[in-house]
Design a protein around this nucleic acid. Sequence first.
DNA 1: TCAACATATAACCAACTGGATATGCGTCAA
DNA 2: TTGACGCATATCCAGTTGGTTATATGTTGA
Lengths: 103, 103
Amino acid sequence: MDATFRAIADPSRRTILDLLAEGERSVTQLLEHFDFSQPALSKHLRVLRDAGLVTARSASRRRLYGLRAEGLRSVAEWVRHYEQFWTERLDALGAVLDAEAGQ
Amino acid sequence: MDATFRAIADPSRRTILDLLAEGERSVTQLLEHFDFSQPALSKHLRVLRDAGLVTARSASRRRLYGLRAEGLRSVAEWVRHYEQFWTERLDALGAVLDAEAGQ
DNA sequence: TCAACATATAACCAACTGGATATGCGTCAA
DNA sequence: TTGACGCATATCCAGTTGGTTATATGTTGA
């Protein structure tokens, strides 16, 4: 879980996840979207793989990466725990408005 | 937004947010939950403040920190975009089970 | 008034990180 | 079979990070 949070802390890696959300991509395909070198991309992919956020399979001489969104579940649950803090306020606001409308 | 993701990448800082979710706390109160020094805590608090995740107000000679959960909104929205990937699968599974039950 | 308290900042350090270049290794096409 | 392709790994480097100790600042109580 710690690995997950550290993995998504980097904007390039979040972009990778965004790209993979559209479907499987090879390393070369992914690389087109970045300014850094291919080894740098491979490093990012390794971090994502170690965090369980992407999968990889070999297809002839290419390597296809895919999204493994379930890896983000812990993040989703963690943040949902906080979501109530702003939805509660909206509920409270709604209650106030209702009360005022009732008068 | 980038600052937000980097801020929550650290487990100590996530713990701080968890503590503040229960209410305002002074630096000394927060410090009881950690093994590191007071300056280290002040540094973490600065990162969280810069990311807009906590608020601080002076109360006599103490400084009370509070949660500012709205700062996590961008994270919540980002991860919700991925949430569909596992809920969709559950929906699909549900459809299969429904179909089998119908036979 | 002054010592102790509560906190922030400064300066420093080791470890980690994201990048680069160089290279190794398997796969395909000619 | 061999050269080019696709990718991973090794090594190195500069910048960032999380920690430390030392110190400065404001506040309160005696």
